[in-house]
Design a protein around this nucleic acid. Sequence first.
DNA 1: GCGGAGTTTAGACTCCGAGTCCAAACGCTG
DNA 2: CAGCGTTTGGACTCGGAGTCTAAACTCCGC
Lengths: 193, 193
Amino acid sequence: MRPLPEGMREKVLAAAELFAEHGLDATKMEDVAAATGVPKATLYYYFEGKEDILAFLFNEILDEVARAIAAAMSTAGTAADRLRAALAAHLRVFEDFPAASRALQFDLGRAARIPHIDERIEAAFRGPVRRLLEAGAADGSLRAVERPRLAAIAILGAVTTVGINAITPGPAARPVEEIADDVIDVVLRGVAA
Amino acid sequence: MRPLPEGMREKVLAAAELFAEHGLDATKMEDVAAATGVPKATLYYYFEGKEDILAFLFNEILDEVARAIAAAMSTAGTAADRLRAALAAHLRVFEDFPAASRALQFDLGRAARIPHIDERIEAAFRGPVRRLLEAGAADGSLRAVERPRLAAIAILGAVTTVGINAITPGPAARPVEEIADDVIDVVLRGVAA
DNA sequence: GCGGAGTTTAGACTCCGAGTCCAAACGCTG
DNA sequence: CAGCGTTTGGACTCGGAGTCTAAACTCCGC
């Protein structure tokens, strides 16, 4: 993937809507061209193919999550406070980027097999939460769980599933801030001191 | 989808391996034919298309989960005991059907949009767990959470994510029974009385 | 054994969409 | 202006999903 020129990034982000609605494979490159206003030949000039566009979108959203979680982690307070803030920040990203989030959910299984994406999920999600759990065991604000990495996976599974559920259109759709406290509460009790 | 004749079910189950490895869209019908020993024309005689085969596989595994959870739910003991048993049973299904489980994970986003499958996920997973949470609030073995449905989604997100992670080949792969207790412990504390 | 209904299969076929290619135009910089 | 990278339309190739057909086979009631 070539570096994108001015304005291209925003245009391509619009493709998330399509991927969220139909999934990667049911979305035609011509549709992406139509929705973004970038002609097919130009898309192929910048991206290696359809999956490369998906990877780009995921990278964008993972940047966002990594930034949000890192910001929450670097605040003052106990590890428990910071974990609470990190999970709230994570949930907020779903709300801020609903199309990209739903696209991610649609093709998460595929995305997780793109090695680069999986590394980024580790760096943006699992790693930070695991470190918070360890910090919590050290400062006494959280219980010392035997397998912090496993607990981090469980926590992120819970939060991500609920977040996706909240933004998926349908009877169960809810504003994220309406549910965030409840979920984080359940999760935090699970690892409380 | 027509009712399958004797022996066809087992053969088609072998397609899960392919879907788990490459995903639905990267798997050719000819490959499915080769792997299952059922010729392409015959597959199209019984199934409406590739996605219909995926739906069949998911139905099979959802049957299994529904059975396992229902059995765990109908045992004696407090609601907390039964919840523990249900989650352990759920995790065991991942281990018993690794190929189908990984196929499910690969295309879960797509599967969740097949209405029939989503209903079955509700019936097999979310509904029973929600009812256990309510029973736990009633018999005092669990805390009365404000939004039992939300908590059920969070619990299943945690357990499913960990289960998938455990059976996914790679450095993080673990036998399920090695991790089940830990995860269930974290989850149970989250909703403990 | 016979005829019909449903099943099984090979193989040819249509159709669509991903990705390639090319050539013409464009726009910037030296 | 010459040259390089960018932009684009449009034609093209190629592979795979799903369709169709016709022949063969199985099983049934008669």
